[in-house]
Amino acid sequence: MAKARALDRRRKSVRNIRKITRTMELIATARFKKAMDRSVAARDYTKQLAKILENIASVGADVAHPLLEIRPTKRAAVLVLTGNRGLCGGYNSNVVRQSMALVGQWRSEQVPAQVAVSGKRGISALRFRGVDLAERYTQFEDKPEFAAVAPIGRAYLDAYAAGEIDRLDVVYTRFHSIAKQEATAEMLLPLAPPQAASTATKAKLASDEYDFHPSAGTILEEILPASFLARLFKCFLDAAVSEQVARMVAMKAATENAGGLIKSLSRQYNRARQSQITGEIMEILGGVEALKK
C-alpha cells in the first residue's frame, strides 16, 4: 500500500503544479497581447520620425551632427535589458550570455565599459559573473512607459555629448515574430545616419518640395535625439513583448510536461494498486485453502 500511496501523493502535487503553470501561461498570454498592442501602437511614431529624417536627408541638408559622428571607442556603455522574474525559459540567460560576450570584448580591447542593467535577473546574473554595474533598474515590468525610459535615454545623450561615452550598445531580446525572438546587441549611439529616400520616392518628394521651419539643419538637430529616444523605447517594448512570449512558451511546455508526468504516474499507481489487490486475494484464497484441510 505504501508505494501506491506515495505515487498518489506525487500525482496530486504534479497536478497542482500543472494548475499553476497553466494559469501562468494564461496570464502571460494576456500580458503578451497587451504588450504587443502597445508595441504596435508605438510603431507609428518611429515611422513618422523616419519619414521626416528621410525628407531632410533627401533635401541634401548638411547631415553632420555630434550624434552621427563615429569616434574611436575609448569608453563604452552597455545597457542590458532582462526581466525581473524567471520561469521564462532561456529569455534571461540568452541576454546575459550576449552581454557577457560584449563585456568580454571591451575587456580584451581594454576599453572601460559602463554597464547598466534593467531587471533583477540580469542584475544578479551579471553580479555573479563579476561585472561592476553602474546603474540598476527594476521598475520596468511588462508595460514600460516612455516617461520612465526617456530620462535614461537623456542621461546617455548627455554623457555622449560630454564625451563620457563614445558608444552605447543595448543588449535585449529583439522581437521578430511570435515564433522568433533573439537576444541581440544593438549599437544605438552613434546613431546610424539617415538614409536619403530611394529614387522612386524621391521623384514623388520632388513634387512636394517641403519648406522647413526653421531650417532643415535645426530640425535635424532636434529630431535626432527624439529618434534616439524612440529607438531606445522600442528596445524596452521589444524586451517586454519577448519576455511574455518566452514565458508563454515555457509555461506551455511545462503544462504539457506535467500532463505527461501525470499520465505515467497514474499508470504506475494503477499497476501498484492492482498488484496489491491481487496479492490480497491470493492471501484470502490461501487462508480458505488452509481452513479446508
Binding site: 521626416i52 525628407n55 512636394d208 517641403y210 519648406d211 522647413f212 521651419h213 526653421p214 535645426t218 530640425i219
Partner: peptide, 17 residues
Amino acid sequence: FDGSRGIGRGHAPFIGR
C-alpha cells in the same frame, strides 16, 4: 516654435518644429 499657424485645405507642404 515662433507662433501659431493655421492650416486649412491645400496648404503648402512644410516640416516644422
